[in-house]
């Protein structure tokens, strides 16, 4: 197996649960170990029901929301686009490949929509703590007043001029998805910003 490299720090984190835990007055930031992420797109009813059948999940159709089951979470990105990600890491490679191939075969190849592996397109960063929204408001024009209290809420917006997807996992706990090439810079910015919270 070739070495897996984090975009954020120059360390090999094969078999390490999480890296770069930053503790700063009620603020924890950590990179989540690479997990499978899939982008799925489609418009038809058949598309929605096929996804439901394969993954046992109903894709959210309400804007800025998500659905989740034991294994997978689905984030609404647009009326015909969703981001799916595995809730936790299992045997990297095998199980993920099965899910992806199954979806590809039944969605893409059957002309119901598209299934694209974006596991490495995004780096997933977990931020938690009471000061989390102060950190975000240092560089994000989005109004978190309602979002904060709404478990499962999703928003695509800008953080320090960088596109991000923010998912409210629990109160004062979010997962942030940022494109890999931007992640080191954003990570650095977040750590710098955290100094002033």
């Amino acid at each position: 197996m070739p070495n897996w490299n984090s975009a954020i720090k120059k360390i090999d984190i094969n078999n390490v649960a999480s890296v770069n835990v930053k503790h700063h007055s009620e603020l924890f930031i950590s990179e989540v170990e690479p997990i499978m992420k899939l982008n799925v797109r489609g418009k038809s009813r058949d598309f929605l029901s096929m996804i439901g059948k394969i993954l046992n999940i109903i894709l959210p159709t309400e804007a800025n929301t998500s659905t989740t089951n034991e294994h997978i979470t689905a984030l609404w990105l647009s009326p015909d686009e969703w981001l799916l990600f595995k809730n936790n890491v299992t045997n990297r490679g095998t199980e993920e490949t099965i899910i992806e191939e199954n979806l590809y075969k039944n969605i893409s190849q059957k002309k119901l929509g598209s299934v694209t592996n974006v596991s490495d397109q995004f780096v997933m960063i977990n931020i938690q703590g009471q000061n989390l929204y102060e950190l975000l408001s240092s560089g994000c024009p989005f109004n978190f007043n309602d979002f904060k209290n709404k478990k499962g809420a999703v928003s695509q917006t800008l953080l320090n001029h960088t596109d991000v997807i923010i998912y409210n996992e629990e109160i004062n706990k979010i997962n942030l998805f940022v494109r890999r090439s931007f992640s080191a810079h954003l990570w650095s910015w977040m750590n710098d910003s955290a100094r002033f919270i």
Partner: peptide, 12 residues
């Protein structure tokens, strides 16, 4: 047109 676009610039 039945076409879906997804950016994978950072994935690869």
């Amino acid at each position: 047109l039945d076409v879906y676009l997804t950016s994978v610039t950072d994935h690869y």
